[in-house]
Simulated assay, not measured.
Amino acid sequence: MQVLQMQMEVRADPAEVGRARRWARSRLAGSGIGVDEPLAETLILLISELVTNAVVHTGCPAVLRVLFPVAGAAGGARVGTVRVEVADISARPPRRRCAQGDDTGGRGLELVDGLADRWGWQREGTGKRIWCEVDRGTAAWVGAFESPHAVTNRA
């Protein structure tokens, strides 16, 4: 299965979240996803949440990676799974928090869980990689990126 992988280094600065959103929007068209598709906004929100978690909760730089099915592969660009990954050097695992009423934080992983078809994390060297996947049409290669050691939070 052919996959188009795009990657961006993220500094440990909350301003990087906006830069990651702009970067992702600029790459959607080249991946076969129109910026006016609901999938585009879902991906932007997922990227925003995962990058925010990395820079705010770890204080470490990170690497954002987005993997798209290649147009013409597996029946065309309108099918397949888009995967978003954020890897950082912090060994601290992601943790769901329980936001109350007017809290301004604590909902990130709940949003990821609600928007993604699957998500999880895995240790990587001294750090970790948190990932999520969104199926587009018939997911011809669901699970293609699964690690036997990944912690999966959705079936």
Rank of each mutant, 00 (worst) to 15 (best):
A74P: 00
T126G: 07
R27S: 03
S26M: 00
G120V: 04
R96W: 15
G137C: 09
R25T: 03
R123H: 12
V56M: 13
L109Q: 01
P14H: 06
G59P: 11
V82W: 07
W141L: 14
P94L: 02
D113P: 05
I47W: 04
S90N: 02
G120C: 04
I89G: 10
C98Y: 15
F68W: 14
A20P: 11
V142Y: 00
G125C: 00
R107D: 06
R83I: 09
R129E: 02
L109M: 08
M1K: 03
A99R: 08
A99N: 08
A71E: 15
D117Y: 08
G18Q: 09
A24V: 07
D13Q: 11
A77K: 07
I47L: 05
G59R: 11
H57I: 13
A62Q: 11
A140C: 04
T104H: 06
K128L: 15
T81D: 14
E16A: 12
V82F: 02
E85G: 09
R107N: 13
R97L: 12
E146W: 09
R78A: 14
I44K: 04
A73D: 15
R22L: 06
A24E: 03
A116P: 12
V142D: 01
G75H: 12
D117R: 03
A62C: 14
H57E: 04
A150C: 03
N53E: 03
V35H: 09
